[in-house]
Design a binder for these strands. Structure first.
Length: 356
DNA sequence: TACACGTGGTG
DNA sequence: TCACCAAGTGT
């Protein structure tokens, strides 16, 4: 038996013996598969699982998801990160209902045209739900194939991606594409792990280049990441009576679509009185000059390090007569405030510090 | 093509 | 501690 056939056979055997029992494994329903795949993009099963359960319960069908508001969908997504996924999830549901009468298209080529569905997710849905023989290439597949077949190209590079995809196309068992695709991913997730792969207990060890040459630590080859950008956020929790000012984030930046208090961002840490003095809007509010900020929170994103403080500010002068609130700011009661989708760090602060 | 996009777990 | 990672996509 040649090396490729052996690989395919062993991965499928390994999967039948070791696969986890996960809720989306007991169905081929494309809505369920699609939802699980979107949630699991760049996300561990343990982290995504509770979100999947809540989404299925709250939005049992693509119609339920399509008719919900974007705010509701974002709220359900709160804390999972990569919020564009949630907005595209919602757009995709609406598209499936409006353009496909509520039935997901059943081919890779049509699936990939939908928002939030790229090459990986299109292949996953096409193979798992519709038995189309297209290989998935995710982080697990990259790792497993680069190690076993000794691929030294950078996996982000054009040649690396082509080489890995071409290899996956040769390996996939077209009699059972759903099983093969899930098998190779599960094998990467549980056995051929990034750190400390279980080579001593691996049926592929005898054909694995990385095992033979002790290259597990070096494969797959990845390019180094850029250093993280540092940003300083000061949030002003503006309170007018029993209502709080919030605004929605727009533009091309983190947390797009989520809500937050009035924000002043600086390139370095400044004192609160400095910020107030310079800010035309806050100056008009005539705040207590001795307001003290919360201790700083450090929040790490993949490419940014945020230093965040919160300042609680009660409005002394009513807006309307002498001044107006900036257009994007609106006031929310306690319960309305809590129902807004927020970044996790903002959510936590508000939950802990906002009483009635 | 390279980079931006979240959060939490891991060694 | 902190760099790296986790079922990628959009621009």
């Amino acid at each position: 038996m040649n090396k490729k056939s052996f690989f395919t056979q062993q991965v499928l055997i390994w999967y039948s013996d070791h696969q986890r029992n996960l809720p989306w494994r007991s169905t081929r329903d494309p809505y369920t598969i699609w939802l699980s795949e979107i949630i699991l993009q760049q996300t561990r099963v343990a982290q995504g699982l509770p979100y999947f359960m809540r989404f299925i319960k709250k939005f049992p069908s693509v119609y339920d998801l399509a008719k919900a508001s974007e705010k509701k969908v974002l709220k359900e997504w709160e804390g999972l990160g990569y919020y564009t996924r949630a907005r595209n999830l919602h757009r995709c549901a609406k598209r499936v209902v409006s353009k496909y009468n509520g039935r997901f298209p059943d081919t890779y080529n049509e699936l990939i045209t939908l928002p939030g569905i790229g090459s990986y997710t299109a292949a996953a849905i096409a193979s798992i739900s519709f038995n189309e023989c297209v290989p998935v290439v995710d982080g697990n597949v990259n790792r497993v194939l680069c190690r076993v077949f000794g691929i030294h190209d950078e996996i982000q590079s054009s040649t690396g991606k082509k080489r890995i995809y071409a290899l996956a196309e040769k390996l996939i068992d077209c009699r059972q594409p759903a099983a093969f695709n899930q098998a190779i991913m599960e094998f990467g997730a549980l056995h051929c792990t990034p750190k400390a792969p279980r080579c001593s207990d691996c049926t592929l060890a005898k054909i694995c280049v990385a095992n033979k040459e002790q290259l597990q630590e070096w494969l797959p080859v990845k390019k180094k990441k850029a250093p993280v950008r540092k940003r300083f956020f000061t949030y002003f929790m503006i309170k007018d009576g029993r209502r709080w000012a919030m605004q929605q984030r727009k533009g091309n930046d983190i947390w797009k679509g989520l809500y937050e208090p009035y924000l002043i961002e600086t390139k370095q840490q400044k004192t609160v009185s400095e910020l107030i003095k310079k800010d035309t809007f806050l100056k008009v509010l005539n705040p207590d000059p001795n307001v003290k900020p919360s201790p700083v929170y450090h929040h790490l994103l993949s490419h940014q390090k945020l230093t965040i403080r919160f300042v609680e500010l009660a409005i002394k002068r009513k807006p309307g007569k002498d001044f107006k609130m900036p257009g994007i700011i609106k006031f929310y009661s306690k319960s309305a405030l809590e129902s807004l989708p927020k970044a996790i760090i903002v959510h936590r602060f508000i939950k802990e510090h906002v009483a009635t």
